[in-house]
Amino acid sequence: MGSLIDFPGLQGFMTAVPSIFTPARIECLAQANDVARKLRGLGYRVVAEDPFPDDGGPSIIQIDVSTVGTRSLQHLGGCSVRNTLTGVESTTIDGVRVVWQTVEAS
């Protein structure tokens, strides 16, 4: 089973959920769930989650910002990084990477 998060440039995410949950993995899941709840509370739709990415980094949550915008995300994360080549913007909120597709004005 491949990751649900499949933005260009974000390759190499996990292919299977581990079956052994150590205290560190449980903490990682709890952290990701807390951030997902916070994002939903702000009106964002969580599209996909990858609690244990293969790159060894923090959990990743993909959201849809089409109806709410990004101002709240930039406030929560302190800043955001936009990759104009892949069309992905991201920030880190409470140790969890939050990514979304950028919306270009036409």
Rank of each mutant, 00 (worst) to 15 (best):
D94H: 02
A30W: 01
A32E: 06
G95S: 04
V99G: 01
R82S: 11
Q62H: 13
T22R: 03
K38R: 06
T84D: 10
S19R: 13
Q101C: 06
V81S: 05
A48C: 06
N83E: 01
T22G: 02
V88S: 00
G78V: 02
G12C: 04
Q11R: 14
G77L: 06
F7H: 11
D34K: 06
S59D: 04
M1C: 12
F7I: 05
H75G: 09
R97K: 14
L73V: 12
D34Q: 07
L4T: 14
V68N: 00
D54F: 13
A32D: 06
I61G: 03
G57D: 09
Q31P: 00
S72H: 14
V35W: 09
V103C: 01
P53G: 10
A16I: 12
D54T: 15
V47Q: 02
A32K: 07
Q74P: 00
R82K: 10
P53Q: 09
I63S: 01
C79I: 10
L73E: 06
L42E: 09
P23M: 02
D55Q: 04
D64S: 10
V46E: 01
V46S: 04
W100I: 13
P58G: 15
V17L: 12
M14H: 08
S59A: 15
G9A: 07
G41Y: 05
A36W: 11
D55C: 03
W100R: 08
E89C: 09
E49N: 05
T91Q: 00
F13S: 06
V99L: 05
R82Q: 11
R40K: 11
L85F: 15
S3D: 07
D94A: 05
G77S: 08
G77R: 03
L39E: 03
G78I: 03
C28R: 15
V46C: 02
L73K: 01
V98Q: 00
Q74A: 12
Y44P: 00
Q62T: 12
R71Y: 14
T86M: 01
Y44M: 01
T22C: 03
T67F: 03
P18M: 12
V81P: 00
W100F: 14
G77T: 07
R97M: 13
G56Q: 02
G43C: 02
I5L: 08
M14K: 06
A30N: 10
E89R: 04
D50L: 08
D6Q: 08
G87L: 07
E27Y: 02
D94G: 01
G2T: 15
Q31F: 09
C28K: 15
G77Q: 04
